[in-house]
Amino acid sequence: MALAYIATKEHSPQESKQAKAFIDSFLKRSLHNLQEEEIQRHTDYKAVVLEHKYNGKKTQKKKKSKGLSAKQKREMKLFHLKPEQQRSVFLPLNELWKQYIRDLCNGLSPESNPQMIQSKLLKADFHGAIVTVTKSKCPSYVGTTGIILQETKHVFRIVTQHDRLKVIPKRNSVFTVEIDGFITHVYGSKFQLKSSERSAKKFKLKGTIDL
């Protein structure tokens, strides 16, 4: 079939009628000992590739992913907390958190530098802290107190005294954290980061902040 190959190359492959006629006559000429029907039978239902076939290498390897995609995570509800939680369960967590903060600030004492503690707390973890909403654009959030269970980019999930899991948006609220007499105000609107990203972020000093 090499001949046919070359010959068809001269014709443009789009003119299929011409190509068909050419093939027919070519077969007749080269296979005189066979009947026409015989040829027909041989060539029927057989793909005759006349166009140039791209012979590139298939290098696409199937990428083996170990982790889960965000969609899968959502579907599996990996981080989905149940709405009924008991506050008493998380008291040890709060103790652990207090210990951690004391460690972080080299022991809290009245004479330690508040600025230093501030900068440390900015990078610290708040899971397990007891927070109170002191100011909020939405008045019904004001005064809610609880232990932070989960901190995401936009919300705090806290468990209140009444053993309820409450979701509180960070935006437009000011939170207060108290440790050993140190009271820290956290401006939620400036805190809208994933808790893991916060440790790498540089906070800028600003004169005044509104909610």
């Binding site: 100011k135 909020s136 654009k137 008045p139 019904s140 959030y141 004001v142 005064g143 909610l211």
Partner: peptide, 11 residues
């Protein structure tokens, strides 16, 4: 505004 945000009463 500031008092309102701190007060926590609906208005």
């Amino acid at each position: 505004k500031d008092t309102y945000e701190e007060l926590g009463l609906e208005g």
